[in-house]
Design a binder for these strands. Sequence first.
DNA 1: ATAATTATGTGATATTCTTCACATTAATTT
DNA 2: AAATTAATGTGAAGAATATCACATAATTAT
Lengths: 210, 210
Amino acid sequence: MKFAKIPMATISRLSIYSRTLQELMEEEVDVISSERLAKQCAVNPAQIRKDLAYFGEFGVRGVGYRVGDLLNQIKEILGLNRPWNLGMVGVGNLGSALIRHANFLRHGYVFTAAFDVDPQKVGRRLPSGVVIKHLEEVDEVVKDRDVHVGVITTPSSAAQSVANQLVLAGINGILNFAPIQIQVPNCCHVENVDFTIKLDSIAYHLSSNG
Amino acid sequence: MKFAKIPMATISRLSIYSRTLQELMEEEVDVISSERLAKQCAVNPAQIRKDLAYFGEFGVRGVGYRVGDLLNQIKEILGLNRPWNLGMVGVGNLGSALIRHANFLRHGYVFTAAFDVDPQKVGRRLPSGVVIKHLEEVDEVVKDRDVHVGVITTPSSAAQSVANQLVLAGINGILNFAPIQIQVPNCCHVENVDFTIKLDSIAYHLSSNG
DNA sequence: ATAATTATGTGATATTCTTCACATTAATTT
DNA sequence: AAATTAATGTGAAGAATATCACATAATTAT
Ligand SMILES: NC(=O)c1ccc[n+]([C@@H]2O[C@H](COP(=O)([O-])OP(=O)(O)OC[C@H]3O[C@@H](n4cnc5c(N)ncnc54)[C@H](O)[C@@H]3O)[C@@H](O)[C@H]2O)c1
Ligand SMILES: NC(=O)c1ccc[n+]([C@@H]2O[C@H](COP(=O)([O-])OP(=O)(O)OC[C@H]3O[C@@H](n4cnc5c(N)ncnc54)[C@H](O)[C@@H]3O)[C@@H](O)[C@H]2O)c1
């Protein structure tokens, strides 16, 4: 292990490894080799070892990796051995589906706040117990509900302004579902989710060009 | 322009450029430089020029790119100057939200088929007019409704089996929302959408490590 | 016409990321 | 205890990707 800049791609893959390890745990697999893990994650075995080498030595030579141990180590690396609180902005079609979705909770992500500007929605209580607040109250609510990450599910026209307000409220991480490239200061880390980009990619590959 | 293998990353970016160009069109901007376009897309200007150079010369030196022209050219490259038919498998929480979502249509993607295995759902007619079919009928329906791309929104436990059936039915492109790495033959191109991986990425950056 | 300006297209360079190949270490067998 | 086997950890090589820097071409101003 050396001290080095960690590739962004490594972080994403650690995330994938952890998903697979979680499954292996549930199947009561104790030990796994980089080769078998690699096959399940659809990556190169050396890639896994390299990725892990950035952070230490987690395996046993000649044996492999202890599934539970490795999972814990990866969670530690990613900062997942603690809950993260999410604040959703824009409780519409997509937002509602997300908030109902159990997978977030399973991975330690909890929606502790929800915002909208539609008077019909503000004040409503979600099944989880969270009450939708007006975005004007974002500063206050972010503090009260200890929100760490903002999730933007507003129309794209509102996304940039929402991002600005989140940053001002002290948010340093944003998951953006609006199909627009939002601009934020360096202190804030943005990840975009845009399905149509993935579809375009498929379209390209299916077209004769690809 | 040279004949060369096109980086996967280039394809994703073309998609982003096209989104921004579409907006610029709506704002009635006629011409844009790689520099300004780059800023809006959060990439390096030379990157844009390089990406485009793989496919030809689309700009005017000293001037920039004609917005409408470039948009068309990019759509042509990606294979987007035609409609693409989608078949959704698993009309649950997420599936319903996606099918209701107008953004797909706006980009030329149409859900022409929907599948489930829940007897309560099979036979129901969606607002769009599409009737949910049983997955058993996938071969037939894929042909009838000319489905090009499969969208998997089933629980992960079902995803691999669903993928197998789609491939057998002749599908060569899959957009997979189940948080699992599905295995398919080379003829089929898979893109995965997993929000929790993005969240993990944010968590990592917010943790002291990042 | 000529010079000045602007912004593309691209070869060269730099960087980042991936894979190989093997030395290293642990466990197992003889 | 030595030999064998297995699979990690990692330096080096390789591939892919991004950026620089400038020659080139179009436009505008003089
Ligand atoms: N629905 C999907 O499946 C889907 C898929 C991909 C991307 N998206 C993107 O997600 C976003 C939301 O999509 P949707 O279908 O849920 O739209 P929606 O119209 O159903 O919901 C948007 C919500 O945002 C709220 N809102 C508007 N402006 C706001 C502001 N300034 N502050 C706070 N809240 C505000 C609205 O009141 C509404 O409740 C869009 O950008 C869309 O492109 C949605
Ligand atoms: N809901 C979300 O916001 C969200 C977010 C991220 C990822 N996902 C993923 O998307 C998938 C669907 O999530 P959901 O919340 O919509 O679940 P859901 O349970 O609401 O819907 C799943 C649907 O798939 C159907 N189904 C099950 N097995 C099937 C099979 N073999 N063939 C066809 N249909 C089948 C079910 O009948 C149901 O209608 C899951 O893998 C989930 O992890 C969902």
